[in-house]
C-alpha cells in the first residue's frame, strides 16, 4: 500500500518534467501570440487610414476568404486524425494524414499568395496606405508561419519514412507541430473575423 503510493507520487512527479520539449514549445507559442497581438493592435489603429485608397470593403471578397478558411479548418482536423494514428503507432497512416494536411496548407498559402499578387498588381500593395501596410504585415506574418509549418510537415514525413514505429522523441515533435498547426488556425479565426469580415460589414 505504502509502496503503491510512493510509486504513484514518483510517477506523478516525473510527469511534470517528462515533456519539457512540449511545454517549452507551448511557451514559444505564447510569445508568438504576443507578436500577433501586437500586429492586431497595429491593424486596429490603422485600419481606417486608407489615404484615399481602397478600404477593406472594396478589396476583400467572400469567395476567396471562404476557400482559405475552409482549407485551414479542414487541415486542422486532418492533422488531428494524424495525431490519433500516431498515438496508435500506425506510421503509414500518420504519413498519409500529414500529406493531406500538407496539401491543404499548400492550397491555403497558394490562395493567399494569389490574393496578394492580385492586390499588388492593381496597385493596392503594402505601400498604398497605412491600412494596407498593416494588413499585409499581419496576414503575411500568418502566411509565413503556415509556410514554416509546411516545411516542418515535409521534414517529419521524411523522418517518418522507412520507420515502423514512433519513438518518444518523434511523438513530441509531432505534438509540437500539432500545437503549432492548431494555434495558426486560431490566429486565422481572429484574422478572418476582425480583418476581413469586420471590414466587409
Amino acid at each position: 500500500m505504502a509502496h503503491d503510493t510512493t510509486v504513484q507520487t514518483a510517477g506523478h512527479d516525473e510527469h511534470h518534467h517528462e515533456s519539457p520539449v512540449v511545454f517549452g514549445f507551448w511557451v514559444y507559442l505564447m510569445t508568438d501570440c504576443i507578436i500577433f497581438g501586437s500586429l492586431f493592435a497595429v491593424f486596429a489603429v490603422l485600419h481606417n487610414q486608407v489615404n484615399g485608397g481602397p478600404s477593406g470593403r472594396d478589396l476583400f471578397e467572400y469567395k476567396g476568404l471562404a476557400e482559405e478558411t475552409a482549407l485551414l479548418l479542414i487541415s486542422s482536423i486532418t492533422y488531428g486524425f494524424g495525431m490519433i494514428a500516431a498515438h496508435k503507432n500506425e506510421v503509414s497512416k500518420v504519413i498519409m494524414w500529414l500529406g493531406v494536411t500538407f496539401l491543404l496548407g499548400l492550397g491555403f498559402v497558394g490562395l493567399e499568395l494569389n490574393e496578394f499578387a492580385h492586390m499588388i498588381h492593381e496597385g493596392n500593395g503594402p505601400d498604398r496606405s497605412a491600412f494596407l501596410s498593416s494588413f499585409f504585415t499581419l496576414v503575411s506574418t500568418h502566411g509565413l508561419h503556415v509556410t514554416c509549418g509546411l516545411i516542418w510537415i515535409v521534414t517529419l514525413i521524411v523522418q517518418l519514412m522507412g520507420t515502423t514505429e514512433i519513438p518518444e522523441r518523434m511523438m513530441s515533435k509531432l505534438t509540437c507541430l500539432s500545437l503549432f498547426w492548431h494555434f495558426l488556425d486560431i490566429v486565422w479565426i481572429c484574422v478572418f473575423t476582425y480583418v476581413y469580415l469586420a471590414s466587409m460589414i
Partner: peptide
Amino acid sequence: PSGESHGSVSSYIIGFVLAVILTAAAFGVV
C-alpha cells in the same frame, strides 16, 4: 497520463462540426 492528453476521433469531429457551424454563422451574419 504521461503523454499529452489527446482527443479521440469523435472529439475531433465534434470540434470540427462546431467550428464549421460557427464559421458559417460568422459569414452568414455579414
